[in-house]
Design a protein around this nucleic acid. Structure first.
Length: 139
DNA sequence: GCCAACGTTGGC
DNA sequence: GCCAACGTTGGC
């Protein structure tokens, strides 16, 4: 199983919006960046991801699961762009903020810090475990 | 609201 | 295929 991180501005699409979609989930559409798209193409059914709120929150707030592998993005006719569907699994007991991640010595390699503008990122298994621990949930 | 970083576009 | 111009993102 692989791990990922999905970044969203809460004013555009928030964790609460994601939770409201329930087990059916929702397309992670609108991505127009090749690196982010390639990451989504690499995702397998059942892979897990962090849901990160950018802008005001700047924190990982929940766990999501891939519930449909890459398929054409319904918001465009441009066949270059694909997306996966994700569904909310559970919220973190407490959000893990960007500053906490930055301060943690074992999280310094996270794409969130190294490539802050990438909206869909891979997360290493050790990073996954640490952030889950900080968030007060089981990995 | 500003600005740095960075990805994309388009002219050459 | 290079690179300048431009647009967008996201932290501060």
């Amino acid at each position: 199983m692989a791990y990922w991180l999905f970044k969203s501005e809460p004013s555009t699409w928030s964790w609460e919006d994601q939770v409201a979609k329930g087990a059916t989930g929702e397309e992670w559409d609108g991505v127009r960046n090749y690196q982010a798209r390639n990451n989504m193409r690499a995702m397998k059914l059942g892979d897990r991801g962090f849901f990160y709120h950018s802008q005001k929150d700047k924190a990982v707030v929940g766990i999501v699961e891939i519930c449909a592998e890459a398929h054409p993005d319904s918001t465009t006719d441009d066949e270059r762009w694909e997306c996966v569907d994700i569904r909310a699994v559970e919220p973190l007991s407490r959000p893990v903020t960007l500053s906490e991640i930055r301060e943690h010595p074992d999280l310094s390699e996270m794409a969130l810090l190294k490539n802050s503008r990438l909206s869909v990122q891979p997360v290493r298994e050790d990073e996954w475990r640490i952030v889950c621990a900080l968030g007060g949930i089981e990995p």
